[in-house]
């Protein structure tokens, strides 16, 4: 079911696949990460051509905790700095490693990597639509904190136009029977037609609003995202929407009891620090699940579970 699969989009996985991944993650957490050197002798390559903190380091940590060796492509000091193409670089990594994790500024590069490489490829964030492993972590966090994903009401707030974590989370939710999803964003950051069409075709109950306070009152999960400054073609457009929404303790005090606030991090100014020490805060827990979910994922793909 999972062995040697590429992980390009969360939409490549059905509910059964995801449930299996989550049970494996539960097992890893129950054993306090001590699952033995399941991947002894294996090599995992990371090729992060775009900045990353959590994704790259959690993949590296996950691989090392499983006993694998990790090699990292450093684009600024590799032949890519001399002008070598991504395609040729991938061919080389495919010769060296058993699994390749890629993040590139070019949209669709993970799919291209999967076409080029014989070994499995994991998309570590690609373009504006796909960050499948982040979605796996987000869904796992909800399931863990709420005991279920089905029947819950979700609010996804922020940059729904350029934010790949938000898009992947939304796609991931379509694999479950959620009650409703609120899409909350100022008009310039509202979702692209491609995303809306796909969500509609998957039969989800979707509500769009610019009114954050109204939406917050009814949701069980509030998923906040950063405005993706680096993806705006025109910096002036970014300045127009910068700071257009900020989640504060005051705003979420109107929420129903048990609300959990998620954020894929990093945050800039869209999520106030005064939420950090409230019971609503779930983003640091979410970040902590990055390693066990990715441990489960790598193990399943390399056939260790």
């Amino acid at each position: 079911m999972w062995k040697f699969r590429d992980v390009i989009s969360i939409l490549d996985f059905n509910r059964e696949d995801l449930e299996h991944l989550f049970s494996m993650t539960d097992r890893i957490l129950e054993r306090l990460f001590d699952v033995g050197s399941l991947l002894d002798g294996k090599i995992v390559a990371t090729a992060f051509i775009e900045p990353s903190t959590r994704t790259r380091l959690s993949f590296e940590t996950a691989a090392k905790r499983l006993g694998a060796e990790v090699i990292n492509l450093e684009p600024h000091i590799s032949s890519m700095a001399k002008g070598e193409s991504l395609t040729d670089t991938l061919r080389m990594l495919d010769d060296y490693a058993d699994l390749i994790v890629i993040r590139s500024p070019y949209e669709g590069s993970a799919k291209h990597a999967a076409d080029v490489c014989e070994h499995p490829v994991i998309n570590g964030g690609d373009g504006t639509q796909h960050h499948p492993t982040q979605a796996m972590i987000d869904l796992y966090t909800v399931r863990r904190l709420k005991g279920r994903i089905d029947g819950l009401e979700f609010g996804v707030v922020g940059d729904l136009k350029y934010g790949r974590a938000a898009a992947s989370f939304l796609y991931g939710l379509t694999r479950f029977n959620v009650k409703r999803i609120w899409l909350i964003s100022p008009e310039p950051l509202s979702p692209r037609p491609e995303l809306m069409d796909r969500l509609k075709s998957l039969g989800v109950d979707i509500m769009k609003t610019e009114n954050l306070e109204e939406a917050v009152e009814g949701v069980d999960i509030l998923y906040v995202t950063r405005i993706q400054k680096e993806r705006f073609p025109d910096p002036a457009e970014y300045e127009k929407v910068r700071g257009s929404y900020v989640i504060t303790r005051k705003i979420i005090s109107r929420a129903r009891e048990g609300l959990k606030v998620l954020h894929p991090l990093p945050r800039v100014d869209e999520l106030s620090h005064d939420v950090d020490d409230t019971p609503y805060q779930a983003y640091f827990i979410q970040a902590k699940f990055g390693v066990p979910v990715r441990m489960a994922l790598i193990s399943l793909i390399l056939g260790a579970f």
């Binding site: 193409s85 991504l86 590139s104 504006t128 639509q129 491609e194």
Partner: peptide
């Protein structure tokens, strides 16, 4: 990725709708 001259990746589009014609890039969506 199909627009990066160094990478030599041919464009690939799926048909979303025939009339009016609407295609979807298989790489970036």
């Amino acid at each position: 990725i199909t627009r990066q001259p160094m990478e030599h990746v041919s464009s690939r589009f799926l048909i979303v709708s025939k009339s009016p014609l609407r295609l979807e890039c298989e790489y970036c969506g």
